[in-house]
């Protein structure tokens, strides 16, 4: 890159160069810098800035759930009172075994649930125990719930921005 560095363009180049992973060599940031034609210090500085802004959630190894023994996963979905959903959603997310917890829109009549909590365990029995903990926490605020188990992975490529 010549002339003044456009940070948005530089950040995009760093994303493209690293979204498939960092090189596993002694000086990985130097390799990335060479590939996109900037100084290594600049790559490190921008990675640090993207970490600070939250554009990068973290840098490191990403383990495979299944290989760590978390072989059962259920998407538990809950119809929670709108007046209490945010307070309760935060508490559901804080439970052990819940890996992701979001509020999402209902799609009536096809779909009545507004809270999605992904639950992991070594087997379905362990998932069900944790679903029971969520049910106990939500109490009367939850009018209904279901657990959707995945039966087949049809595609898993991960996110690619461009």
């Amino acid at each position: 890159m010549n002339g003044p560095v456009d940070l948005a363009v530089l950040d995009r180049a760093i994303v493209r160069a690293t979204q498939g992973g960092l090189p596993r060599v002694p000086r990985p940031y130097h390799t990335v810098a060479e590939a996109i034609g900037v100084a290594p210090e600049l790559v490190i500085e921008r990675l640090r800035a993207m970490l600070a802004s939250g554009a990068i959630r973290r840098i490191g190894v990403v383990p495979n759930h299944y290989r760590l023994g978390w072989t059962a996963n259920g998407m538990s979905v809950w119809d929670v009172d709108d007046a209490r959903v945010d307070e309760l959603g935060m508490r559901v997310g804080a439970l052990p075994g819940v890996s992701h917890c979001y509020r999402r829109p209902r799609r009536l009549p096809a779909w009545r649930y507004n809270v999605f909590a992904m639950v992991h365990g070594r087997d379905r029995a362990e998932v069900e125990v944790q679903v029971g903990e969520i049910a106990a926490l939500l109490g009367d605020a939850a009018r209904a719930h279901e657990v959707l188990y995945s039966t087949k992975v049809l595609k898993k490529t991960g996110l690619r921005f461009e």
Partner: peptide, 24 residues
């Protein structure tokens, strides 16, 4: 790290981006 990528213990190694914060 190389071996754990090869044998599937790790799915990847590097930065984990937040697509929404990047405008996606």
């Amino acid at each position: 790290v190389d071996r754990m990528i090869s044998d599937g213990t790790l799915t990847r190694f590097g930065p984990l981006f937040d697509a929404q914060k990047l405008g996606g």
